[in-house]
Lab assay of single mutants.
Amino acid sequence: GKMTGIVKWFNADKGFGFITPDDGSKDVFVHFSAIQNDGYKSSDEGQKVSFTIESGAKGPAAGNVTSL
């Protein structure tokens, strides 16, 4: 299901970062391709987002990331 969290950091040059879930669980990796914004796929530190957890090649990753 959908979770909410805060972007801990995001490196636009490398195209990835981490989200800290609101439920206190482990930080989740986020790749720019998962960000659902139109246009520039980046996110700012401290941005509140909703997301799903997908199982990626390197473990859990955020999917369907949407700014709230």
Rank of each mutant, 00 (worst) to 15 (best):
A12Q: 12
D22Q: 03
W9L: 00
M3V: 09
I19Y: 00
G46H: 09
M3P: 04
G39C: 14
S50K: 05
V30M: 13
S50M: 09
N11W: 09
M3L: 11
A34T: 06
P60A: 07
S55P: 12
S50F: 06
I35T: 04
W9D: 03
T52A: 03
K48A: 11
K26Y: 07
S33D: 05
K58E: 06
D38K: 12
F16C: 07
T4S: 07
A34Q: 11
G59L: 04
P60S: 08
A62I: 02
S67M: 15
P60T: 09
K8E: 03
E45H: 14
S25I: 04
S43Q: 11
N64D: 07
I19S: 00
S25C: 09
L68F: 08
T52L: 06
A62K: 00
S33N: 08
G15A: 02
V7E: 03
E45Y: 14
G39I: 12
F51I: 04
V28H: 00
F10S: 00
H31K: 02
S43K: 10
S43T: 15
V28K: 00
P21C: 07
A62M: 01
G24L: 04
S33F: 06
N37M: 14
T4Q: 06
F18E: 02
A62Q: 01
S43M: 15
F10L: 03
K41D: 10
Y40L: 13
N37L: 12
F29H: 03
T20M: 10
I53S: 04
T4N: 05
S50H: 07
I6G: 02
G39S: 11
M3W: 07
K2V: 13
G56S: 14
Q36C: 14
T4W: 07
D13K: 14
D13A: 13
A61C: 14
Q36I: 14
S25V: 03
G5L: 06
N64R: 06
Q36K: 11
G1Q: 13
F32E: 07
K58T: 08
I19C: 06
V65R: 00
V28I: 13
G5T: 01
G56Y: 09
D22S: 08
F32L: 10
G17T: 02
I6W: 10
Q47H: 12
S55G: 08
A12K: 15
V7N: 03
N37S: 13
A57D: 10
T4C: 12
V65P: 01
G1V: 13
G46D: 06
G46W: 10
Y40G: 11
G46Y: 10
A61N: 09
K2I: 13
F18I: 05
V28T: 02
K26Q: 13
V49F: 03
N11C: 10
V7I: 15
L68C: 11
P21H: 01
K41S: 12
G56D: 09
K41Y: 12
F32V: 13
F18V: 06
A61W: 15
F10D: 03
G5Y: 02
K8L: 07
W9N: 01
F16S: 00
F32K: 13
G24S: 04
A57R: 12
P60V: 11
G1F: 10
G59K: 05
A62L: 03
A57L: 13
K58Y: 14
S50G: 04
S25A: 06
G15R: 04
N11Y: 04
F18R: 00
G15E: 04
K41R: 11
A12H: 14
F51N: 01
P60Q: 09
T4F: 07
D22G: 02
A12I: 13
T66K: 09
T52F: 08
E54F: 12
T52C: 10
T66L: 09
K48G: 06
